[in-house]
Every structure is written in C-alpha cells, then in structure tokens.
C-alpha cells in the first residue's frame, strides 16, 4: 500500500530508482493485491448474509458474552492451574532434552557433518508442525488427558528452543574452548567451562520465552481433548453459555499477561 503511494509521489521528480525496479515493484504490488482480493472472495464464499450482516451479527454476539459470569471463577481456576502446570512440566522436560539437541545442531560443536544435518533436519520438520496438530496426534495415541497435551508441548517447544539455543551456541567465542583443549581438557569440560558461561543468560531468557509460548499454547490444547482449560471453554461454548465462556477467556487473558510480565522482568534482570 505505502509502497504504491511512495512511488506515485515520486513521479513528480526525476526518478531516483531505475525504471526496471519500478516496474517490478508495480507488478509485485498488483499481484499481491490481486491475490488478496482473490483470497477474500474465496474465504467469504460460504458466508451467508454478506459482510454487513456479519458486522451487526458480530456486535449482537459480542453482547451475548457480556457481562461475564464471574461467579464461576472458582470453578475456572483448577483447570487453569492444570494448564499452567502442563506448560511448566513441558518446558522443563523440553529444556533438558534441548541441551544435547542444541549441541548436536550447532556447527561449531558438532564437527560430524551427517550428525549435524540429521539433527537440523529433524528439528526443522518438528518446527513446521503446529502445536495443536501434535496434540491431535498424541490424543489419538494416548487418549484424552493431560499427558498427550504435555507431550505435544514438549515436541513443539523442543523444535523452537533447540534452534534458538543452537544459534546462540554458534555465535559463541570459540577461543577459550581452544585454550582449554590445548591444556588437556576433555569435551565435556570444554562445554561446561567454556561454553556454558557464554550461553547461560541467553539460554535462560529463551527458556522463559518458550514457557510463555507453552502457556499460550496449553490454553487451547483442551479443545482437542489434551487437557487444561480449553476443554471447559469448549464445553461452555457448546452449551451456548457465553457469559461463562467470557469468564474463562478473561482468566486466560489475565494469566497470559501476568506470566508475560513476570518473565519480561526476569529477562530484563538477566541481560
């Protein structure tokens, strides 16, 4: 959009960009717009009543959610607690599993090319699968409950965490590790003494970040039967009990914001 305005404003002056670039940008711009319009048409095909209807409809529905029924807060808390607990367990286990994986997928530590590429590829594939899809599969395997939820979160966060941390490891100053090798230290000692102090602050910060992600993700896991607060949200919506659902949504909202605030504070203190 802005791109376009930018260009037309320049027409008045002798152009500072080559004509070819301008033509390219124009073409790309129209393709993007075209694709957008097409997407809009496609996605609205099945919509009954058209757009205007939707807006008034939306407003009416929104009204149904208010006021939230705050009396159910007591009942909302236990599944919310479960949700947080799932996220904490998953983050903890993922953090432990990440350590070897991150080392294996860091080029400066893992000198074996096949090993490095295998780990990288597995992690890359893991990262393409959305958390909820993992949850669906684990529910298929383990049945409904918190265990499939935790497993889905572990696998999901493993891909992200290992990538972030392996990138940190690759950016590390290798000189002290060489000095330790030269003085007869073994690989584990080199990692513990030369690597760990260099990556620890970043590591902690990333773990907190993944905890945030996991809390957000675990909130909706219940929708597919993988435990936590999503389950009762799904139920309440199913019963058209919108004020109750709104309370649940508010609780989620507050918890997510609180966790984000706390982990931001810790991160600031770390760096």
């Amino acid at each position: 959009m802005n791109n376009h305005d930018h260009r037309s404003a320049q027409v008045k002056t002798p152009s500072i960009y080559p004509t070819k670039t301008k033509a390219q940008i124009t073409i790309i711009f129209f393709i993007v717009i075209g694709f957008y319009l097409y997407s809009m048409v496609k996605t609205q095909q099945e919509m009954v009543g058209g757009f205007n209807n939707a807006i008034s409809n939306m407003w009416n529905v929104m009204l149904k959610f208010f006021p939230p029924n705050l009396e159910v807060i007591g009942a909302v808390w236990p599944p919310m607690a479960t949700t947080i607990q799932m996220a904490i367990i998953a983050t903890t286990i993922a953090t432990i599993l990440t350590i070897p994986l991150a080392l294996l997928s860091a080029q400066n530590i893992t000198t074996s090319k096949p090993l490095y590429y295998t780990t990288r590829t597995i992690l890359n594939i893991l990262r393409t699968i959305p958390d909820l899809v993992l949850a669906v599969i684990f529910v298929g395997l383990f049945g409904i409950g918190v265990l499939p939820g935790i497993l889905a979160l572990i696998v999901f966060s493993l891909g992200i965490l290992a990538k972030l941390i392996s990138e940190t490891i690759e950016a590390v100053d290798m000189n002290p590790l060489e000095a330790m090798r030269a003085s007869g230290a073994n690989s584990i000692q080199m990692i513990a003494y030369g690597l760990v102090p260099q990556v620890l602050p970043q590591f902690t910060s990333f773990v907190l970040y993944v905890l945030e992600l996991n809390i957000r993700a675990s909130v909706v896991l219940g929708l597919v039967g993988a435990g936590g607060i999503g389950l009762i949200l799904d139920q309440q919506l199913g019963f058209y009990n919108y004020p109750n659902a709104m309370t649940i949504i508010l609780v989620i909202f507050v918890v997510v914001l609180t966790i984000e605030y706390i982990s931001n504070k810790i991160r600031e203190a770390l760096i």
Binding site: N175, A179, Y193, G194, Q198, L200, P201
Partner: peptide, 8 residues
C-alpha cells in the same frame, strides 16, 4: 587473543 571466558 588471550582466549579467556569473558563472562567468567
């Protein structure tokens, strides 16, 4: 380059 662990 001395090769010390700077953060330690």
């Amino acid at each position: 380059n001395y090769n010390l662990v700077k953060r330690s």
